[in-house]
Amino acid sequence: MDKIIEILEDLVPDEEFAGRTGLVDDGVLQSIVILNLISELDDEFEIDISVGDVVPENFDSVEAIWALVQKYQG
């Protein structure tokens, strides 16, 4: 989880991520950031997120992103 927050803070400076929801709906994570994030996650966790999982629900909070990563790791 901390790693994810770290990646996010690097991609979008000046934003608070911990414990926050609505990241996609509020426009914090926009398409270009999401694609950067996926690229980072793939590298960091050695997973291969498929495009079918790129829906707002999976990126709306740090927890949701973590859950997505775990799904691929498990």
């Binding site: 398409s31 694609l35 996926i38 690229s39 793939d42 997120i49 498929s50 495009v51 790129v54």
Partner: peptide, 19 residues
């Protein structure tokens, strides 16, 4: 365009290799 072109294209094998 974002959901059905941008995401699949960027996440396609060829693009990942390019990345």
């Amino acid at each position: 365009m974002k959901d059905y072109v941008m995401y699949p294209l960027t996440m396609s094998g060829a693009m990942k290799k390019l990345g």
